[in-house]
Simulated scan of single mutants.
Amino acid sequence: MPLAGAVGGAWVLAGGVTGAVLGLGAGVVLWWWRGRQLAAGRAEAVDTAAATRQLPLAADLLAACIAAGAGPVVAAQAVGEALGGPVGRALARGAAEVRLGGEPAAAWRGLAQLPGAAALARLLERADESGLPAAEPAARLASDARAQWARTATARARRAAVLISAPVGLCFLPAFIAVGVLPVVIGLAGGMRGGR
């Protein structure tokens, strides 16, 4: 519909073949732009799922790097570059901003926007501002993220078991009626008829 509107609008404004060509060009650009917007929306949804999966590993790697003696910013930079994905990009971007002199709260905001990563972002911000040790809290965050992921997976499995029982029950119900209930009803009806 927007493509037809662009072609028709340009044809009315410019008129003739020139208007049709301009409208067709505007329609193609509009169609291309809309496709990119839809692709960006789909990519964001995929990134959310990837971020949820990557978060425990990222926190474990951060804890290991910090325990080995690296500072929180250096550890975040190393883990971000090694890990990749949405969590890795957010870690690398935040570390780069802090190293360039950015405010830690603003630098780790991108990480905090990922699902479940707000506590890790606060930890990195506090460790950078105050110098508090961050290895044990990062390991604890990894453990908590893994436990949350396991709880979510268990809840999904339970929900799937409940949802699958209805179709299975509907498949076996006709067989149960045909093999179990119908012969009994026919036998009782025959017995009542013969008993007259």
Rank of each mutant, 00 (worst) to 15 (best):
M1Q: 13
P2F: 09
P2G: 08
P2A: 12
G5F: 10
G5I: 11
A6F: 14
V7E: 05
G9H: 11
A14D: 01
T18R: 14
G19P: 00
A20F: 13
V21F: 02
L24T: 06
L24Q: 01
W33S: 02
G35I: 10
A39K: 03
R42L: 09
R42H: 11
A45W: 03
V46S: 10
T48G: 14
A50C: 08
A51Y: 02
R53K: 12
R53H: 05
R53Y: 06
R53G: 08
Q54L: 08
L55P: 02
P56S: 08
L57M: 10
L57A: 09
A58Q: 01
D60A: 05
L61I: 06
C65I: 03
I66Y: 05
A70D: 12
A70F: 15
G71C: 05
V73M: 04
V74T: 12
V74Q: 13
V79T: 04
G84Q: 06
G84C: 07
G85W: 03
P86D: 06
V87S: 11
L91Y: 12
A92R: 10
G94S: 15
A95V: 12
A96G: 10
R99Q: 14
E103K: 11
P104S: 09
P104C: 12
P104D: 12
W108A: 10
W108F: 14
L111H: 10
A112R: 10
A112S: 15
A112G: 10
P115K: 14
A119H: 08
L123I: 13
L123H: 07
L124I: 11
A127G: 07
A127S: 10
S130E: 12
G131W: 08
L132T: 14
A135E: 14
A139F: 00
R140A: 13
A142T: 04
D144T: 04
D144S: 08
R146L: 05
A147N: 02
W149P: 00
W149S: 13
T152W: 05
T154A: 15
A155G: 09
R158A: 14
R159C: 13
A161P: 08
V162S: 07
L163A: 15
L163Y: 06
I164M: 09
S165Q: 13
C171N: 00
L173W: 08
A178Y: 03
V179G: 03
V181L: 13
I186C: 02
A189C: 06
G191I: 00
M192W: 01
R196Q: 10
